[in-house]
């Protein structure tokens, strides 16, 4: 398993932050990716927790291994005050909403706004509609999510941390996007995620490239 292997020199670190309203499944999503596991009543996150997993992208040339360093944050409104510390200098940000809660999509919008204002402009933002296994309780259509992602020029996925739908695809494509946009690059030393200065601030993320349907 990639994550069990020790950090090798050629691993490219990528700091990822997970944001969104409470109980939308941020921790579950991160745990699904890192441990391939799902716990129905995941304990509430206090402050933030850290997870990491290395993923090899074999179809890149040359093949590279990205080490995702994931900061999973607490969702309650009050903890928003702590968030800047986690999204500052992040290569990627997952803004998660719950497809069974229209409210959580509004919260996601405000997170996107905050990232636009305060985060590093090259941070790649991914809009993630989680819990897509709960189709019968859906309140947010795929179209709504896609529209928001297109408007804000974000990557968009619908995932299910419970059954694993799209979770690996999400991170793999995020990794590819980070590489292709030069947000992370092989050859830089590992401290680079904390102090990147590779592109001028003006280069905004291009139009949404990936829109995947939830196939559950």
């Amino acid at each position: 398993m990639a994550s069990a292997s020790p950090t090798r020199a050629k691993d490219i670190p990528a700091k990822i932050v997970v944001l969104g309203e409470s109980a939308v499944g941020k921790s579950s999503l991160a745990l699904r990716f890192v441990r391939r596991d799902f716990i129905p009543n995941q304990e509430a996150t206090i402050g933030a927790s850290f997870l990491s997993r290395s993923v090899s992208l074999v179809d890149e040339s040359p093949p590279v291994t990205i080490k995702f360093e994931i900061w999973d944050t607490a969702g309650q409104e009050r903890y928003r005050a702590l968030a800047p510390m986690y999204y500052r200098g992040a290569a990627g940000a997952l803004v998660v909403y719950d497809i069974t809660s229209a409210d959580s999509l509004r919260k996601a919008e405000s997170w996107i706004g905050e990232l636009r204002r305060n985060a590093d402009p090259q941070t790649v933002v991914v809009l993630v509609g989680n819990k897509c296994d709960l189709e019968s309780m859906r309140q947010v259509s795929i179209q709504q999510g896609q529209d928001l992602a297109e408007k804000e020029e974000l990557l968009f996925y619908e995932t299910s941390a419970k059954d694993g739908t799209n979770v690996d695809a999400l991170f793999t494509n995020l990794g590819k996007t980070l590489l292709s946009r030069g947000v992370i690059a092989s050859g830089v030393d590992r401290r680079s995620t904390m102090s990147r200065n590779l592109q001028p601030p003006g280069s905004r993320t291009p139009k949404s490239e990936q829109q995947k349907r939830c196939d559950c």
């Binding site: 996150t45 206090i46 402050g47 933030a48 927790s49 850290f50 900061w71 510390m85 590992r190």
Partner: peptide, 20 residues
């Protein structure tokens, strides 16, 4: 050296007073 900011860990320790 590893550019790790220890402040990132503190809230989860103190706000829950070490629970979890």
């Amino acid at each position: 050296d590893i550019r790790f900011d220890v402040r990132a860990l503190v809230p989860s320790w103190l706000l829950s007073m070490f629970v979890n």
